[in-house]
Design a binder for these strands. Structure first.
Lengths: 157, 157
DNA sequence: TTGGCTGAGTCTGTCAAGCAGACTTATCCT
DNA sequence: AGGATAAGTCTGCTTGACAGACTCAGCCAA
């Protein structure tokens, strides 16, 4: 029996994270904001999201602190709102880059990646690397999820 | 107008990736397999997934090449099946580690992280780092998604 | 050899979510 | 005053999630 069977899944980090990020369209919304598209109608049209769903997702992302709603005004036009990443949102960069990297590897387009993360200024391509705090760079097979300090035991029948 | 508005979202990598990973419960299933839980009934009970949904997700993940179904037999018992990560599945490690890291930072438990990625053997904690190919380690704010070779122009009204 | 147990599902009916398309509101421009 | 536009809300339909009962095969014990 795998060792993990002894540990509870009650409040697993993946569950808690997926409560926010796991709904349909959430990553599409985030993608738009990450590439700099910040207005309701632009996001809706580009990502092809049903309006009602976009409203729900934006509200949820604001409630959870990933986005903030900010008024802006183009001179000579009325006030509008745009949605911008908070620090919590920005810190999803590693997740986004890792997802895009995986997608480009396993679901490639003939024409190459349509989206490419770059280091501003230096212009180098950005990737994401596994790194252990002893300085090693492990391959996936050399990594394992273990119970951490917050793990609780589980009754296993 | 943000520059990204000129580029199509037709076949964006995030969209194509989310077609596989974006359904409800998919990441819960992956979590179980990542921590070493591989049998239908164990996954179902630990993650609390409706049976029908688990069947659907496992089938989809096999079709898409992230899992494979493998027969095994405990001596003196009949043949059973287990679900194991393929290389494509294993290569989601950076995504999983990044998600868990983000969750532990922004949705922390008082008791600490319940799940902790470790380097097998050395035992060091594993994290995920943004890195540009010139060797820099950029902060999120220094990274930007740009159109890559596969990007196509978009008619913008 | 019958009856029970278990793992791995399928089947059925209910309920929530996603969806398309029409409608609404406020503000600006002409 | 009339029209355009951004950012929504409203309505009815369809799909997906869900709980709980049922199935089925193979082994085990009496």
């Amino acid at each position: 029996m795998p060792e993990a069977m002894n540990w509870s899944t009650e409040n697993c980090t993946i569950s808690r994270t997926m409560e926010i990020l796991g709904e349909k369209w959430t990553f599409h919304v985030l993608r738009e904001v990450f590439v700099g598209v910040r207005r309701f109608e632009d996001i809706r049209a580009r990502a092809n999201i049903p309006r009602q769903v976009l409203t729900d997702r934006l509200t949820a992302l604001i409630d959870r602190g990933l986005l903030r709603r900010e008024a802006y005004r183009i001179p000579g036009q009325r006030e509008r709102y745009e949605y911008r990443l908070t620090q919590a949102g920005l810190d999803l960069y590693p997740v986004m880059v890792a997802l895009v990297h995986w997608g480009d590897q396993y679901l490639p387009l003939d024409s190459g990646p349509p989206l490419s993360p770059e280091h501003r200024g230096c212009g180098g391509k950005v990737t994401v690397t596994l790194q252990c705090d002893a300085g090693h760079v492990p391959t996936p097979r050399e990594v394992a999820f273990r119970p951490g300090p917050g793990a609780t035991r589980r009754k296993v029948s």
